[in-house]
Structures are given as structure tokens and as C-alpha cells.
Design a protein around this nucleic acid. Structure first.
Lengths: 221, 221, 221, 221
DNA sequence: GATGAATGAGGATTCATTCAT
DNA sequence: TATGAATGAATCCTCATTCAT
């Protein structure tokens, strides 16, 4: 005798439903890719999935929820594909190798799942991240932070976060350029992105080992 | 009824028109800032400007044109404010100084004209830059390229472009973080952005002079 | 697997069906109460009942049918609770007593079954009573008419009907006010409603007995 | 340079706009009458008015606003037609005459403006009056209260309100019956309604003059 | 019986743009 | 020029009802 209609029932789903959800997410991915997240309409997604709008709303309360679920599944798949870490945590690994590998993996993943880029696209107004992007962003951020912390175990948390934010931002920017080009040009941008990140992180890591890699770029005087 | 209607009316009309345009652009800037470019509606802009939608369309054929004109004027003002170059072209200037100054100027300009960020926001779909952003992007790019070329006179054009694209991308990413924070945190992000760019460019410049990179890139003089 | 499937299964099925129906009606009552009949959705009723929409339609062909059945059961329960008559039919009973008792009962019933009000709510368009309300209305009307006829045995049928309609209408109006208030205010409205009806009926009844009306109907003791 | 888009500008309107508004309100009245307020859709109203949905929304932010404006205009017209008072305020006027006249006027007004009934229709859930009906209800209530206070100058305010609420409720109920019938039957219901109200009010007024109209009708023995 | 999936027309509302005055 | 009116397709979302399993 439930009095509270609000309460989320765990909703037993049928196999057909699961298939529909997958189909809808696929359609959403396709639409997000071709029009961008903001311009994508739920009707367009339903149409692309070959179902009626009502069906879409049986599984998702709104566009945001679709994006969130899509992001969740993507992160899940990323984890399954590449394991918990994006790169070897062995601090002995040269930074260049680690970063290079991480970027290669990220890029490969992005090319396999082009919707990733659309979902990663930041807020139109700085500081006002919508929930749909926030979850994805936060997850990515924490993965990057984990990766960094293995190289910078002594860095204070705030700094680590800042560095991770910077890296993610730079990565997104680089990705945009990479995806916007093809062939040799694309490869060149990949190299460029790696260069930016490696050079950014190198001095920080160097500090860690007590190696003065030449001086550089600390935050503190 | 002015003394000399023949001569003055046409002028007046234009003067009034100019005022209208300025008024509309100001309103557009305000609306773009508070809702983002995509979500901004022409009706909202007209309302904000205190004119009717019809009036808006008397001066601009569509929303895109408003953004383009706004971008043009911003670039123009930038040029007027900071001169043709964003930084001293003297190649003797240490890179750190030059980049630091350029970024400081860019950021100052952005804070004075917050709409700049809204207009700079990249394409939702990589490779498909809308015309409204394209013009601004191209202009910025070429200014950066100019700046770079004074440091890297021997670099091939394609490489220069690539580096400029990278710099611009990184700058946008950094700006987003900067604008998304306040106070000390914001300052920290400013330092971080400078670090990323300086470290990225250092080796390129160093190569040029045969100097082993290894100096540079602190925040404090 | 029961011992005697032949005999018990059919029964069981019906028993289960009855339970389902009761469950659905209870849910419907709850939803009708909280949103009103018009705004109530069959999906919401099914959800509230903890069953699927399909199940609901196994027992009721449409929303209307639910309301009708609910109304029927309410009338049935009313009869069971208060007997065939709403008040003693003894014409010797003072009108005041009879009417007061009838109203008290009606109100008590309404408070026990708040959905009653939702179902009683008249037609949005005069003269076009929907079937769902019509049945309930007709039943109530005839009960009131019966009650009246014991006091006005000589009144022509048309007049009796008219008086009954008036009484029912007034009662509904009063009920709305009563339910819309609480505590002492509510009690005051109950007294007011009784006053209206008693004063309305008094002369009619008085006529019957040749008594010059002149007793009764103040608000204050 | 208005910063606040919320602020309601007084909106200079053109003559055409005024005509459209009138046309839309007329259409709304028609639709409210034929389907009831709740079931009426803005699209249907626009269609009835022969304009596009967008046009409707140029003048009204939503359905509620249409109802409110319609109600306002009706009350305005009522005042213009019948003057500030619904009936002579002369306390010497026999109650019967005054009430009879007031009801006749109300009914005449309702017959001229059948939408009045649709707008008067109370809340689906007692106590939760929607804004659109509330305004109309409050206005009517206060007019009735004014009328009553000329007959019951000594009654405390709370009682006056209660009596007015009762009268309004009874009136609505009666109106429903009246509009639901025609010809002689309708007339009979008009008489009946008058009887209810006059008999309800008579003792109250009688008290005022120190005339014991016979005693009572209290709740308690 | 029971379930959840599916429907699709219809709901309110918005918006870039055009038009008559 | 300037205005406010007008458009109509498109937006998101809901709901009574039916269907396959």
C-alpha cells in the first residue's frame, strides 16, 4: 500500500526493455554526435531509435538522464577496457611513457566512442556545469587525479585537483583539434597534445624526485 | 526640425543607427553572458535592448550576424587597447615575460568583456565551427600566430598554425577554469595556465636559440 | 497446489481478482483525493496500487469505469452503514432533528471516505453530467428524495425532485466549505449548512402540517 | 540599460493587439464554455480565435492568465452594468425584494456571459483554489459581503464572511441547476434558489430588527 | 492473470524570423 | 525607422489505452 508515489521502485525490467534502452542510448549517441548535446532533441533521439517519443520517456525522464546514463556506461566501459588505472602506476615509469600511453588510450577510446566528446563538452557558462556533464567530468577528473597522485604523492590535494583540472581542460582542447583533423595532421596534433601535457607535468614530477630538471615553474616562490 | 535637413538627416540617421547597433550589441553581450550564446534568443536581446524584435532585424539579418559583429568589435577594441601586437615582438624578451604579459592582457580583456568567453566557446561538433565563432577564432589564431612567429621565425607555417591552435585551445580551457573560480583559487589557475603555455613553448623557442631550456617559467619575477 | 484444484482454483482466482479490484479502487480513491478526478491518470492509479497499467485494464475498461465502481461501492457502504434510510422516516420526527442527523451522517461518511467529495464534484458544463458522476448523483438524489417524501408525502414528484436537487446542490456547496476549513471554523460551517437546509425545508414541511412556520432555524441557541 | 529581464514593462499596445486580446478572450470564453476550463487547451483557444499558438502567447503567458483576465473583465462589466452595488443598499428594502433582485441580476448576467459559470467552478480539491478562480471568487465574495453587511451591520466580520461564502456556494449550486434546465423548469429552479437564500438570510436579518422570527434551529438540543 | 513495453496524438510553450502599420 | 503582431514548426513531455510475452 505505497502512499508515496515519489519513491523510486527498482523497476524490474524485461529483456526487451534492456534492449530498448541500449537502442535508445545508441540513438542518443548518434544524435549527440551529429548535432551536439544541446541541440539534440528527445524527439530526434526517439526517431533515430525508431520508437515513439512516449517510449523514450518510459525509460528516461528527460534528456539529461540519457546523457548521464550514457556517460555512466561509457565510463564503465572505459574501466572494463583499460582497467582501473589509465596507466601503469609504477612511479618508475618515465612520465613521458605514462602520459603518452594514457593519452593514446584516451584518444583511442574517444575514436571508438565519438559521443564521448559531445558529452565532455563543458558548460556554456563557466561555473555552471549541468548535472549531465558534471558526473562525467567528475569521474574523469578523479581518474586523472589518481593517475597524477602516483607521480606526485606529496602534492597537497588542492594542487592535485588543480593540476588534474588543467590536464583535463588541455586534453579536451587537444581532443577537439585532433578530432577536427585527419591523417597526418591529426597525428601531429596528437604529438602536440602529448608535448603540452608532458612538458607541463615534467617539472612537477622532477621536483618529486629531488631532481632539478633545470629549475622551472613551481607555484610557490 | 533642424536648420539644414538636407545634410543633417542622413547623418543623423546613421548616428542613430550606430547608437542602436551599439545598444543592441551591448544587450546581446549581456544576454550571451547570462545564458550562453546558444540559449540566447533574439527576442531576449531585443527586450534587453529595449527595442522591438523588428528593430533588431533591421540591423542584423540573424542571431549569427550579431555574434559576428560583436566579435569583430571585440577584436577591434582589443587591437585598440593593446596595439597591434599582444606582446612586445622583441625576440630578446624572455619567453616567460612575453607569454605572461600576453596572458595577463588576454585575461584582463576577458574580465572587462565577459562576453568574449561566450563567443569563444568552440564548436559543439569538432570540425564544424559555426561562422559566428569562426571569425573570432581565426582572428585570435592569427594574432597568436603572429606573436609566435616573432619567437619562432624559422618554423614552417603549418607548424606555427598547429602551435597557435594548441595555444588557443589551452588558453580557452584555462580561461574556463579561471572564470569558474574566484580569489586565490582563480589566481592559482592563472599561474597554472601560464605554466602550461610557457613550458609548452619553451623548448620550441629554446631550440631556436640553441639554448638548452632549463631556465624560466616562474610566476614571480 | 491445493488438494482440490477443480473447485478451488476458480474461487481463488475470483478471490484474487476481488482483492485486486479492491486494491485498485483504494489506489484510485487515494489518487482522486490528492489530484482530483480529472487530473488523475490511470497510470498513477496503477502505480499507487503497485500494479502495472495492463493489470488495471484487465479489471476496468477505462478511467470512468473505475469512478463508477468506486461510487457504487461507496453508495453500497453508505447503505450498509446507515441503513436504507439516511434518517428515521417517522414523520413525527422534527425536521430539525432529521435534517441535522442526516447531514451529520453524510459529513461523517465524507470524512471517512474523502474520495466521496472528488466523485461528487459536479459537471464542468451544466447539463452535461459525465456518466461517472451521474450514477452517484442519481443515487444520492433518490435517497434524498426518499427522505423528503416521507416529510412531504403530498408533493408532486417534479417538485420533490427539484427540492432534492436543490438540497443536494446546497449540500455539496456546504461540504466544499466544510472540508476547506478546520476546527472551530469547520464546525461553524456545519451549523451554517444545517441552517440553510432546515430553513429551506421548514416551510415546505410546515405547509404539510398546516403549521405556520415560525419555530426553528436560528444560529444561536 | 535594464538588467532585469523580469520587470514587467507596461507594454504599449497597438489597437490591433487590443482587438486580438478581445478576440482571444472571446475564443477562450467559447472554449471554456464548451469544454470546461480544465479541459480547455491553449491550442484550442488559439484555433478558435483563428490565430496561431504563438500569437496567443504574445498576449498571455499561460492559460491561467487568460482566465484571470477574462474574470477581471467580467467583474468589470458587471460593475459597469449593475453599478457598484448589486442591490439597493437601503436597509428598508425588504430582504425578499433585495435578494430576489440580486439573484435576478446575477442570473441575467450569467445568461449573457455563460463563461462566468465555467470560471466560477470551484477547486477540484477543497482548500486548493487555483489563482485563476481565486480572484473571481474573492471579488464575488466581497461584493456579496458588502451586500450582506448593509442588512447585517452588527454581524462580526467572520460571521459575515461565513454567511457570504454560504450564499455564494448556494448560488453556484443553484446556478448549475438553473443552467441545466430550460423554460418553466428553469424558472422553477430560479424560484427555488431564491427561496433557499431568502429563508437562510431572513432570520439573520430579523434578528437585526429585534424581531424574534420564531426562534431558531440550533445544532444542539 | 500479470507485466512492462509501446503507442501517438495532444498538451503547453518557445523562438527565429517576417510583416503590416 | 520602429513597432508590436504574427507565424508555425519545433521543443519537451503526458496519458489513456493496447499489445506481446
Amino acid at each position: 500500500m505505497p502512499d508515496n508515489p515519489q519513491k523510486e521502485q527498482p523497476r524490474r525490467r524485461q529483456a526487451r526493455g534492456e534492449r530498448r534502452i541500449a537502442q535508445l542510448l545508441e540513438a542518443a549517441a548518434s544524435v549527440f554526435c551529429s548535432t551536439g548535446y544541446t541541440a539534440a532533441s528527445t524527439n530526434a533521439i526517439a526517431r533515430e531509435a525508431g520508437v515513439s517519443p512516449g517510449t523514450l520517456y518510459q525509460f528516461f525522464p528527460n534528456k539529461e538522464a540519457i546523457a548521464i546514463e550514457l556517460g555512466d556506461r561509457l565510463m564503465h566501459e572505459m574501466r572494463e577496457t583499460y582497467g582501473e588505472a589509465l596507466a601503469p602506476v609504477d612511479p618508475a615509469t618515465p612520465l613521458e611513457t605514462a602520459v603518452g600511453a594514457a593519452i593514446d588510450r584516451f584518444i583511442a577510446f574517444n575514436c571508438d566512442h565519438p559521443v564521448f566528446f559531445a558529452l565532455m563538452h563543458g558548460p556554456d557558462i563557466p561555473g555552471r556545469m549541468a548535472e549531465e556533464h558534471d558526473a562525467l567530468h567528475a569521474t574523469l577528473l578523479s581518474r586523472i587525479q589518481d593517475l597524477l597522485s602516483s607521480f606526485l604523492p606529496d602534492a597537497p590535494d588542492a594542487e592535485l585537483t588543480r593540476t588534474a583540472q588543467m590536464c583535463l581542460g588541455v586534453y579536451k582542447a587537444g581532443l577537439e583539434l585532433i578530432l577536427g583533423h585527419e591523417g597526418a595532421e591529426r597525428d601531429a596534433y596528437v604529438r602536440e597534445l602529448k608535448a603540452v601535457l608532458i612538458r607541463y607535468l615534467e617539472p612537477l614530477v622532477g621536483d618529486r624526485l629531488g631532481i632539478a630538471p633545470g629549475a622551472t615553474a613551481g607555484n610557490t616562490p
